[in-house]
Computed example of a mutant assay.
Amino acid sequence: MTRSRVRLLCITSLLAIGLGTGLTPAAGTDAYDPWPGLVQDIFNNRAMNDGSDVVAIEMPARAEDAAIVPVTLRTKLSPADGRRVVSITLVIDKNPAPMAAKFALGADANVSEISTRVRVNNYTDVHAVAELSDGKLYMTKTYVKASGGCSAPAAKNADDAKARLGQMRYRQFAKTGQGPASGTREAQIMIGHPNNSGLQMDQVTQLYIPAFFVNELRLWQDDSPVLAMEGGISISEDPNIRFTYVSNGAKRFRAEAKDTDGHVFQHEWKADDSGT
């Protein structure tokens, strides 16, 4: 999503809140359902099939902190199913920019679980839409009570955020009974970045901080794609992605991230390295 598009969505949301136009309903109300319009805007009005046997979404029913709400996406296809999950799109319906992230799953990585943290701006449905190799879309949803996550002040000050910009940490965890170089693995990638939403106010100048966020992340084991993310303003400060995959015996794990200001951050680790 372009920065101009994000800025327009943020301004529209602010005007709706400030002027009481009714475009953004009060927290806790369900008078307005944006989902049909989002199906058209994000998915080109493609048919949505029941995804209860395809993908699961887990979030707390009521968020403790609307700026860092945990979410887990889990594939549910039977091993005997000849199809595979190509991508999962996470949509937070009533956020200013509803498409939080789209995750593309590596063809040979067998990614089965993805966890991250998101901002939630209103009481809202949250949808997970899986695209399968049969070309069809499968949808499931949950409901989250939270408010103000997109406008919440940054947890770290600007100087700290600048010093940490683009710093990456990588951890991996062997599943029980699996060796360090093969089998199902659990890994985590963390990126130092303010991920400014465009709705946060500078506490000194009282001006809104421009949107500035990681909009692309790609992960490989050697040269084989594991996971790619197209991100938006709903991903929390310091993006943190935890996921499962099947190791192919690679020697290296590589990451590349890009943000909306054109910065490119790259790092690689030994495949059996669980440090920074």
Rank of each mutant, 00 (worst) to 15 (best):
A27M: 10
G28V: 00
T29G: 06
D30I: 11
D33W: 06
D33Q: 11
P34R: 12
P36N: 07
P36L: 09
L38M: 10
V39F: 06
D41P: 04
D41F: 09
D41W: 04
D41Q: 15
I42K: 01
F43C: 05
N45Y: 10
A47L: 15
M48E: 05
M48K: 05
N49G: 08
D50L: 08
G51P: 04
S52C: 07
D53Q: 11
D53I: 00
V54W: 11
V54I: 15
V54K: 04
V55K: 02
A56M: 07
A56R: 10
A56G: 08
A56W: 03
I57A: 01
E58S: 14
M59Q: 04
A61H: 13
R62Q: 13
R62N: 06
A63R: 02
E64W: 08
E64L: 13
E64K: 14
D65Y: 09
D65G: 05
D65Q: 11
I68D: 13
P70F: 08
T72K: 04
T72R: 08
T72G: 00
L73S: 05
R74Y: 03
T75W: 07
T75D: 12
T75V: 12
T75K: 08
K76C: 09
K76I: 05
S78W: 03
P79S: 02
P79G: 01
D81L: 10
G82T: 08
G82K: 07
R83T: 08
R84D: 13
V85G: 05
V85I: 15
V86C: 10
V86K: 14
S87C: 06
S87W: 03
I88F: 04
T89F: 07
L90K: 07
V91C: 09
V91L: 05
D93E: 15
K94W: 09
K94M: 12
N95I: 00
N95R: 05
P96H: 09
P96D: 10
P98T: 01
P98F: 00
A100H: 01
A100M: 03
A101H: 00
A101R: 02
A101W: 00
F103K: 00
F103A: 02
A104M: 12
A107K: 14
A109H: 06
N110G: 11
V111P: 03
V111I: 05
E113I: 09
I114T: 11
I114F: 07
I114H: 10
R117V: 12
V118M: 05
V118K: 09
V118P: 10
R119T: 08
V120K: 03
N121W: 03
N121L: 05
N121Y: 07
Y123W: 14
Y123K: 09
Y123D: 15
Y123A: 14
D125G: 07
D125V: 06
H127G: 02
A128P: 06
A128I: 11
V129F: 01
V129L: 00
A130K: 00
A130S: 00
S133W: 10
S133Y: 09
D134P: 06
G135W: 02
G135Y: 02
G135S: 00
K136R: 15
M139I: 12
T140G: 02
K141H: 12
T142W: 03
Y143I: 13
V144K: 01
V144F: 01
V144R: 01
K145G: 10
A146I: 05
A146K: 04
S147P: 00
S147D: 15
G148P: 09
C150S: 13
P153K: 03
